[in-house]
Simulated scan of single mutants.
Amino acid sequence: MKKLIKFSDFLTDVYFKNRKDLAETTKSNLHSYFKNRLDFYNKRMLFINKKDILTWLEKENNSYNSHRMNNNLYYIFEFAKTHKYIFKNPCEKLKVKASNKAGKIFTKVEIEKILSYTKQNCDKLYRACLLALYGGLRRAEICGLKWSEVNTKSCEIIISGQIVRVDAKPPHFTEILKTESSHRKIQFPKFVIDELLLLKDNDVYVIGGFKYSFLDPMYITTKFRWVLDWLGLEHRRFHDLRHTNASILFEQGVNQKLISTRLGHAKMSTTIDVYTHLLNVQQEEANIALQKYLQ
């Protein structure tokens, strides 16, 4: 009977099978997150209520990640409601106040420490940091970057693939990116390209791996965490280097459309939503500038 299906079964056997538009990596990430973080993961769909959602959000401290996952839950339950698995969407009209969506960015001093240490002690991570800081590349995109996509003369890099892990399977290269807009071309400072060439260790991939010809994204995650601990810096994700890149561009007054394009966001509204706090600062600066000029 439809109404007796568990959330776990509905997610894998119904929702994912019907959402052909979702990338396999997205499905894998959602499944892993929900399985490990939702107390109601094995609860029957019909009996999941707003209290369950609020309890989970409180447990997650209303972080940006929980805010994002709550949006995913909304669409999952809405799908269930449309197909008569439930009567009401427990996420409906649920206002979630999320923390800073862009995460915690790194300061200039912290960046200098990270780059200095990794250059001397772990050059693979050093190159990954350069690509994230100067190009805003995602971790999987960095690992999947091939020399064939690097124009050493114009210093342009084409993002056309990534390394992904689906469930417990070994990582592999795929040309399927997060969104169509993730296929993009980014120009880098010449010194970044020079550093990549100087430390070249693979004829196919820009950063060679250990077990595989490419670098495993998990290596970046674990090694970056270790480096932060060694340097005595506050724990943040490697992904926050990407946010740092975008934050610097915003603070320097770079065109919002260009920033969105460089980040590979599907919609400009995504960029604006994530970096609203920076846009508010720019609004204030614009008002001050206008007032100063007109008075």
Rank of each mutant, 00 (worst) to 15 (best):
T12F: 00
G144V: 08
I159G: 06
T174G: 04
A102L: 03
K35G: 01
G209K: 12
N65L: 15
N287H: 10
T82W: 02
S213G: 00
D123E: 12
S63M: 04
I114C: 09
F10Q: 04
F10G: 01
N65T: 15
H235E: 07
M218D: 15
V164A: 01
L278D: 08
D229Q: 14
T222W: 04
N245A: 10
I207D: 03
N245D: 09
V150P: 00
Y75R: 12
M218F: 11
L38W: 01
R68W: 04
F10P: 04
Q252D: 15
L57W: 03
I53Y: 02
V274T: 14
I76Y: 11
D203A: 13
T244K: 12
I158L: 10
V14D: 05
R19W: 06
K2F: 07
S269R: 04
L22N: 09
N71P: 00
A102K: 07
T221A: 03
E24R: 06
W226V: 07
P90C: 10
G209Y: 05
F210T: 15
A286I: 07
A80T: 09
Q295K: 14
S63F: 01
F173E: 14
F214T: 11
A286E: 09
L30T: 02
C143I: 11
M218H: 15
F10C: 00
L130V: 10
V150E: 12
K223I: 08
E195I: 05
N70A: 13
Y85T: 07
T25H: 00
S28G: 04
I220C: 01
F214G: 11
N65K: 15
K93Q: 07
N49Q: 09
L231W: 14
G103Q: 04
I159D: 06
F188L: 10
G136F: 03
T55K: 12
G232T: 03
E251I: 05
I158Y: 09
R127L: 15
Y134C: 03
E251L: 13
V192K: 06
L231D: 08
T107R: 05
N49V: 07
L115F: 11
R225D: 14
M268W: 00
N151L: 06
E234W: 01
T221Y: 10
A289P: 00
L233K: 02
N70Q: 07
E24W: 02
D39M: 11
T261F: 06
V192A: 10
N89A: 00
S63R: 01
I111N: 11
I114D: 04
L228P: 09
S213M: 09
Y74K: 12
N65P: 00
D123I: 13
L22W: 10
K292A: 15
G103R: 02
H183W: 11
M45V: 05
P171F: 08
L30M: 13
S32W: 05
L131T: 02
